[in-house]
Design a protein around this nucleic acid. Structure first.
Lengths: 143, 143
DNA sequence: CCATATGCGTGCGTCGCGCACGCTATCCTT
DNA sequence: AAGGATAGCGTGCGCGACGCACGCATATGG
């Protein structure tokens, strides 16, 4: 039975799948939000303003990578560097209003995709699936 | 409600998650099976012997990429190039016995991970979740 | 029989990444 | 109070993966 889940997850994690999904979600948004910069944008939205080093461990990237991506997002006006309140070495990466709007729009689009594909399900099943998936991801081999 | 699913999927697709999972799965297997070569190996196992160009569109890669990965797998003895029965230009990529064993082992390990994380679930819920996930992936925005 | 098309592998430029360095600011010890 | 050790940041460098385009071998159609 694990095999059935493994196959489904395999498709989810497949490169083509991720790329296609990402392209369909970022349709029409600026060039700055691409598959490279998105994780930084998203992590920033999840956790609020943070330093680059802090973000790096979250995103699973070297600090240098975060710096470069943040710079790109900054040039696009989606992220702003703010002086750290107590540490004058560090810069705080903050979403600008445009950045917040971009993330909100992306989330909305993805949620729409999902609810659309769940439209035909009996509502109880959809909700139960959402709960189960959440639990599976939280407990599972992916935590 | 789509948001709940979106969050869970976000974690699944996150780079760190995929890398950690992949590393834990390929623990102890040869160096040749890494995150780069695995998709070719896996696709080959799913569909049987195929030409490089054919695989390329499936994996979402340029033909050159498939060629290079296949060469690496060939050197590791997991894949063999067989003359195409009717077209002498083409080479058929075929899993060797060692390749088949490697894929089977990987699948078994992943299935074990999954069933382990589902151990505490009521059996009905686990089975229902497997079915729902399969359906969601097949119908959903990921097809 | 020759021109065009197809499959494959390789060279080249590009891009993202990790590592290591320099710079600035902070912290700690004396 | 001062100075060396430490931490954060950004950048240069080399590496590896990728796509593109070319050359070679074979197929196919006129």
């Amino acid at each position: 039975m694990g095999y059935e889940i493994a196959d489904a997850l395999g498709l989810l994690l497949r490169r083509t799948t991720r790329e296609r999904l990402h392209r369909s979600l970022t349709e029409g948004m600026g060039e700055a939000v691409d598959e490279v910069t998105y994780p930084v944008l998203s992590a920033l939205a999840r956790t609020g303003p943070r330093s680059a080093a802090d973000l790096a461990s979250d995103v699973g990237l070297d600090r240098s990578g975060v710096t470069r991506r943040a710079t790109r997002l900054e040039q696009a006006g989606l992220v702003r560097r703010e002086p750290h309140p107590t540490d004058r070495r560090a810069a705080l990466l903050v979403l600008t209003d445009a950045g917040e709007r971009a993330v909100a729009e992306l989330r909305r689009r993805l949620a729409d995709h999902i609810t659309a594909s769940l439209a035909a399900w009996p509502p109880g099943a959809a909700r139960e699936f959402a709960r189960s998936l959440h639990r599976f991801v939280a407990d599972g081999p992916f935590a």
